[in-house]
Amino acid sequence: MINLLSYTCIGIGLFFWFWGTWPLVGHRSVLFKLHSLSVADTLGSIAIILGLLLKIPREWPLLVLAILSLAIWNTMLGYVLAYCSSSGGSHD
């Protein structure tokens, strides 16, 4: 039962990864790609780590730390990249 749940979590995370990374190939603006990438990467990664956590609950401090740093850093990185790329582009 728990095994099935963990595989479901990892599957959802994988789906998020592909869904968020696929727009990167097209010719859209940086901000559009950044939006889909940061949302899908963060949520997908958190889902994958949750699946791993269900598989091996013994390593919970490590995986919880990974989830926390992922949630904090990736949102911050999204803001920083958006700020840098837009203020750099406005001087073109």
């Binding site: 990167l24 940086v30 790609k33 950044l34 990438l37 990467d41 990185l77 990249l81 840098c84 790329s85 750099g88 582009g89």
Partner: peptide, 8 residues
């Protein structure tokens, strides 16, 4: 910047 996105 697209490369930076890919790097992230």
């Amino acid at each position: 910047w697209q490369k930076m996105l890919a790097f992230a």
